[in-house]
Simulated assay, not measured.
Amino acid sequence: MKIIVMFIIAYLLGSIPSGVWIGTKFYGKDIRQFGSGNSGTTNTFRVLGKTAGTLVLLADVLKGTLAASLPLLFHLPINPMVMGLAAILGHTYPVFAQFKGGKAVATSAGVLLAYNPPFFIYSVAIFLVLLWLSRMVSFSSMIALPLITLSSLVIGDWILTTIAFILTIFIIYRHRENIKRIRNGTESKVPFGLGYKKDSHKPHN
Rank of each mutant, 00 (worst) to 15 (best):
V154Q: 10
D30V: 02
G37C: 05
S39P: 13
A114L: 15
R32A: 07
P203W: 09
S123M: 09
K197G: 03
G49Q: 10
T51Q: 02
N116T: 10
L167F: 10
T65F: 12
E177V: 14
V154W: 15
F127K: 08
F99V: 04
K180E: 12
L194D: 06
S15Q: 11
L58F: 15
D157P: 07
M136A: 11
H201K: 15
K103R: 14
G101N: 07
N79C: 07
A144Y: 04
V56N: 02
G40H: 14
L194R: 15
I126Q: 00
V154S: 13
L55P: 06
M83S: 02
A144P: 04
G156V: 02
T24W: 05
L130V: 06
P203E: 15
R181N: 00
H201E: 13
G35M: 01
L13Q: 12
F119G: 11
A86T: 08
G14K: 09
R46I: 03
A104C: 10
S69V: 05
K198E: 11
P118N: 07
L113K: 08
F34I: 05
D199P: 00
K25I: 05
T65A: 14
V129L: 15
N38W: 01
K2F: 14
Q98T: 06
F26N: 00
L150P: 07
D199K: 06
L89E: 00
L13E: 03
G110V: 14
H91P: 00
F99D: 08
V56S: 08
N38H: 05
T65P: 12
T51Y: 11
D30I: 01
N116Q: 11
K180C: 03
E177C: 05
N79T: 09
F192K: 08
G195R: 13
F139D: 07
D60E: 12
R32Q: 13
I163N: 14
D30C: 05
V56D: 00
T42N: 03
F127H: 02
I166P: 01
R183W: 04
R46L: 15
I88T: 05
T54C: 10
P77Y: 01
D157Y: 05
K198W: 07
A52F: 00
P117D: 10
L85Q: 03
G49N: 05
V5H: 04
N184G: 08
I78M: 13
V190S: 00
I169K: 13
F7K: 04
K50D: 10
R181D: 09
G90Q: 00
T54S: 14
V111G: 09
R181S: 10
A67N: 02
A114E: 12
E177N: 12
K180P: 10
L76H: 02
I166R: 01
F170S: 05
G193M: 03
A86F: 11
L66S: 13
F192W: 14
E177R: 15
V111M: 06
L160A: 01
N205A: 14
T92W: 09
F120Y: 11
A109W: 09
I8C: 10
G23Y: 03
L70M: 11
A164M: 13
M1S: 15
A67W: 13
F170C: 04
L12Q: 00
P117M: 07
A114C: 12
F99A: 11
K50R: 15
T65I: 01
L153D: 04
P146C: 06
G35T: 04
V82N: 09
W158S: 09
I143P: 07
G90A: 07
A59K: 02
L70I: 14
L73Q: 07
N38C: 08
S141Y: 01
A114Q: 11
T149L: 08
I172G: 01
L57H: 06
